[in-house]
Design a protein around this nucleic acid. Structure first.
Lengths: 211, 211
DNA sequence: CCGTGTGAACTACTTCACAGCC
DNA sequence: GGCTGTGAAGTAGTTCACACGG
């Protein structure tokens, strides 16, 4: 393949683009067809400068002196983020958190489909979770192949997480969202994002003491 | 001399300190009494330089040529983060996510006690969740006072979140962890952190398309 | 005129490299 | 000798301010 220049979006821009997308949807729901960086930035909770700078990474989609066409801009951001395609998600770990995530609205919307939920615990295997049934984690390879999983969500204890990441890497699952409270090593080419709930609470504790 | 006496830890440092704390606990569990920035940094998944720089914000607690005393450093970080005191957490929203969070191990450890779970839905009120029962959100003020709540976790739909933040502010709850997929306005003096699960998935989708 | 798009200035954070001390 | 602690250098991200074009 011909090498395109590695023009990857900065991490921070990427995170905000998802917020603009939601903000645009909110504006569209209000019946607005056009908007400006000021209005959109307010809705997304950022300042207008950074919004315009972020959008400049995608090219020029506004009109000077006027603003942006809501639907057009939303469509463009969606395409850039890869949300025009279908994402098939497997949840690893059918404990409280895993089960809650499988039904979470944010996970089932916008092209993300939870296709499977797996666990090691024999007591959980076969149990219904929404429209799915818990499958044994020993069948991971089979499930990933059958459902064409491309995103995995790790809702397992810290000790189990690294082994699963390694297995997923072998199965060419290249995107993982981990809730395990441990740093994980990932092979190059795999994308990992962590959500660490107890870290968030600890940060709040510090801020509360400060303030 | 700087104008302000109280120099606050950088946000990024703060987040890593919580990781060092976990890493130190892991080392202590292995029976180690002393460690070095190299070992600790590896366990925490960061590089040694930034670790030493982070610790320098807390003052000098290592010994040149030797390293750090595990328990001493852990104790010091804990104190800095305000983890020597008791934190009383209320969970707002008793849906799948709220119920899962109330039992989440990371939430119940290290001084964080889930004292109450509340919801608007009459069908849920009175239902048992672990050792608690769901209480009506109309009783928020009473519950906050009774349990001396100082941290609230928002696990409600986006539309309800802002009103709850405002109510919490009136009740002097100064720290909020929100799972609502919306930017929220907070009064000065209130600390808000957001965990946005669908944003995380969207970022992964983009990264997967890129790679 | 008005709001976008963007270089330039600024701020925050990370890494380097080595002086300082045990 | 070896590892900490820290200025200095480097990098990433944000805000400013204004030229540009509908």
């Amino acid at each position: 393949m011909s090498e395109l220049e590695a023009r990857v979006l900065p991490e921070a821009t990427l995170a905000r683009l998802t917020q603009y997308l939601r903000a645009l949807n909110a504006l569209e729901a209000q019946g607005l067809e056009r908007t400006s960086s000021g209005v959109l930035a307010k809705e997304a909770g950022v300042n207008p400068s950074i919004l315009r700078k972020d959008l400049s990474w995608l090219g020029s989609y506004g009109t000077r002196g006027v603003g942006y066409v809501v639907r057009e801009l939303a469509e463009h951001i969606s395409r850039t983020l890869g949300l025009n395609q279908d994402w098939k998600v497997a949840i690893l770990g059918a404990g409280n958190l895993g089960r809650a995530l499988s039904g979470y609205a944010g996970f089932t919307s916008r092209g993300f489909n939870v296709k499977a939920i797996l666990d090691v615990d024999p007591a959980l295997i076969g149990e219904p979770v929404g429209a799915l049934r818990v499958e044994p984690i020993s069948e991971l390879a089979t499930v990933v192949a059958r459902e064409e999983i491309n995103i995995a969500v790790l809702a397992v204890p810290g000790d189990a997480a690294q082994d699963l990441v390694d297995s997923l890497a072998d199965l060419s699952v290249r995107s993982v969202l981990s809730f395990a409270p441990k740093p994980l090593k990932v092979p190059t080419g795999m994308n990992l994002r962590r959500v660490d709930l107890s870290t968030e609470l600890q940060i709040l504790a510090y801020l509360a003491v400060q303030g």
